[in-house]
Design a protein around this nucleic acid. Structure first.
Lengths: 228, 228
DNA sequence: AAACTTAGTGTAAAATTTACACTAATTGCA
DNA sequence: TGCAATTAGTGTAAATTTTACACTAAGTTT
């Protein structure tokens, strides 16, 4: 497992998860370096290996972090401000964890979708702990990671509008209400139930299953799956 | 004019121009290095300076190439395949023009809009000659530049659909037919004139001027300007 | 004067979007 | 057992947008 690292380019991943109510982002805790400081949060990411593509680097980061493969991944933007590092905590972290802390690093941002219940956290070279956070409650992150998160959400909204992405966030079987809540979470606005159902059924996005919900405190909803 | 160059990151610009009929891309001719080879084409681009942002680097490339400022510019993708350089002509060029030709370079792609008649070609460090080429007639370019062009066009189409960009390609005064042809060029499909006019006038995208075309071989069209 | 060419125009059918209320069917509790 | 609470499922119609279609007007050139 010896790879030559390219110290000038990294990938950071905005990993979205959906808990049937809200959209979440997976964040990591990173160790403080040499200075006593409160816990620090960041996006998962890593430097790119010399022999891997950007996409492969992002896939690797995801695999290391979540132990999942074949995850939906999309590059959304490159970040390369010369003054991305202007907080002493970030500088301290770089000095503890990077071989060339003074190198200017361009970061290519990716967003991804995983099922929250499929997450199997692995010890990785860049994350001690991982946790989910509602997209409306993102804490202060290292470097320019808050900006990266905001941008990813914006791009996701746009992508959703033009080609409906994000179904990977749902379980294999789901109710139309869950689907509606996903749409509403991504678009950040309410949709009318009757109109939503009518539209989704008309567009043949979903296929009804011969199954209903069980053990719910209300009328059991019919289950659907995605129309492949 | 002495800047430290970052040998690991470059920007390439897909510069769109519109000649009232078709969408074009501005390409450069680059010198052959040491080997006798037919003329080579590429996208304009340059390595990023250590103290400049990615956006600033792209602006600089544009300014050097076209002598224009304040150009509409948008980042659309990062390209970083490890084997971007696998043609001997490209390798030869790198060896003649780059200080560290062996360095792996990540390229951040930008697209831009300029008026074709405003182009004032300048001698620049990276282009000997520039020329416009219809987007359907792009020759074989260096490195992965053909892929970069294709991607830019795709992104432009998407961006146009979601937030109508590209009006900068038109002159200050234009006819509705010119506007329609711009739409059709970007979308790559015909639009119905009556419907187009009705829609555009309804959306208040344009403002009618007290002026008509002159010296045309048909009924003179009314001139419009963009509604700021 | 005629030929050629594009500018400018309206109707209406089809499709989509928007807005709105009530009964059905489960679990849990008294 | 009945009730409370809660979400599932449903249709109508008005408003808006999209789609499809043909002919006269007004210049320049021959």
């Amino acid at each position: 497992m010896n790879h030559t690292v390219n110290p000038h380019v990294s990938v950071d991943c905005v990993i979205f998860g959906f808990d049937n109510e809200r959209l979440n982002v997976l964040l990591i805790e990173r160790s403080a370096g040499n200075i006593p400081v409160a816990v620090q949060y960041a996006l998962p990411g890593d430097l790119v290996w010399e022999e891997e593509s950007l996409d492969d680097a992002a896939s690797r980061v995801l695999k290391e972090l979540t132990n999942l493969e074949g995850i939906y991944l999309k590059q959304f933007k490159a970040f390369g401000n010369p003054n991305r590092v202007n907080d002493f905590k970030d500088l301290d972290w770089l000095q503890s964890y990077r071989q060339q802390p003074q190198a200017r690093v361009i970061t290519v941002g990716y967003y991804a979708f995983i099922r929250m219940d499929e997450l199997q956290p692995e010890a990785s070279s860049f994350a001690e702990k991982v946790f989910w956070r509602d997209i409306h409650e993102i804490p202060l992150l290292g470097f320019d990671h808050n900006e990266i998160v905001d941008e990813a959400i914006e791009v996701l909204r746009n992508d959703f509008d033009s080609n409906k992405v994000g179904f990977e966030l749902l379980p294999d079987k789901f109710t139309l209400s869950q689907l509606q809540t996903l749409y509403e979470s991504i678009l950040d606005r309410k949709l009318d139930k009757r109109n939503f159902r009518k539209k989704v059924l008309k567009e043949s996005i979903v296929v009804p299953l011969d199954e209903k919900q069980k053990g719910v405190l209300h009328k059991p909803a019919q289950l659907f799956e995605l129309n492949q």
